[in-house]
Amino acid sequence: MKPSNKLNITVLLLVVCIAGFAVWHNREPKAEAVFGQQDESPMKVGPKAGLLAPSFTLQGTDGTTYVVDGPREKAVIVNFWASWCDPCKLEAPELNAMATKYKDVLDIYGINVSSQDYKPNAERFIKKYGLVFPVMFDMKDEVYSKYNGAVFPTNVLIDKNGVISEIILGVISPEELEEKIIKLTES
């Protein structure tokens, strides 16, 4: 087997293992009683669907301060990425298209997890893909850790009420992403 094929297989296995760990780490707890109610109201904050999104404030590369903290005018997708991440490269053009197409009802915030990247490479990534949505740098892994980040890319879909609708680990098809955006922006 060629060395490049071995490397590709190794990288693929590593990505699958990381994604598996991330899914296991963010799994839903089992119901404690058949008729009992789970104590997970939208008043609770946490990195899980159905809970209020953990709040954060970061300055974008455009100098504007961006905030996720409760109700807002538009739904938002928080996209955690790294410049070395091949799936992030695949989804960047699609996120650009969605940001433009749904700009009246959706914000997309790109957050480079700079603690796991090299900022000059991230800046080149932004230019190469011509990102049209706001991009921020999470220099100390503070925001990514609030969302239990474990894999790149991670997309957190947050409705207008500030409640997490879904957390997407890895890349999904453009059609699937658009379906999720339509559902998110209709609520």
Rank of each mutant, 00 (worst) to 15 (best):
G110Q: 08
N155P: 04
E91Y: 08
E179R: 09
L184D: 03
E32T: 14
A31S: 11
T64P: 01
V151P: 01
A22I: 00
V171Q: 13
W81C: 07
Q37G: 13
I9W: 10
V15K: 14
S83P: 02
K30Y: 06
F56E: 08
E91T: 07
S187Y: 09
N121C: 04
V163W: 08
L58I: 04
R124V: 10
K146L: 14
D39F: 03
N8W: 14
S145L: 08
M136K: 08
T10Y: 13
P47W: 01
E28V: 10
L14S: 15
G170N: 13
A53C: 04
G63Q: 14
L169G: 02
Q38L: 14
Q116R: 07
A92P: 00
M1E: 12
I172D: 07
V45H: 00
L131I: 13
E176Y: 05
F80V: 04
W81A: 08
K119V: 15
L51D: 10
L95Y: 03
P47V: 00
P134E: 10
I168V: 15
G170I: 14
K101D: 01
D159E: 07
G110H: 09
R72L: 01
D107F: 06
K146I: 02
I181V: 14
K183F: 05
L58N: 05
S173V: 05
P153I: 06
S83V: 02
V16Y: 08
G110R: 10
L7H: 12
E166I: 04
A99F: 10
K30M: 04
T61A: 09
S165I: 00
G36E: 14
S187A: 11
K180E: 09
Y147T: 06
A99S: 12
T57C: 06
L52I: 00
Q38P: 12
I168D: 02
E142P: 01
G46Y: 06
N5K: 15
P47S: 11
Y118C: 00
N26I: 08
N26V: 10
S4Y: 11
M1V: 15
F137D: 08
D107T: 02
V135P: 01
F80R: 05
E176N: 11
V151W: 06
L7M: 14
D86N: 12
Y102S: 05
N155F: 05
N8M: 15
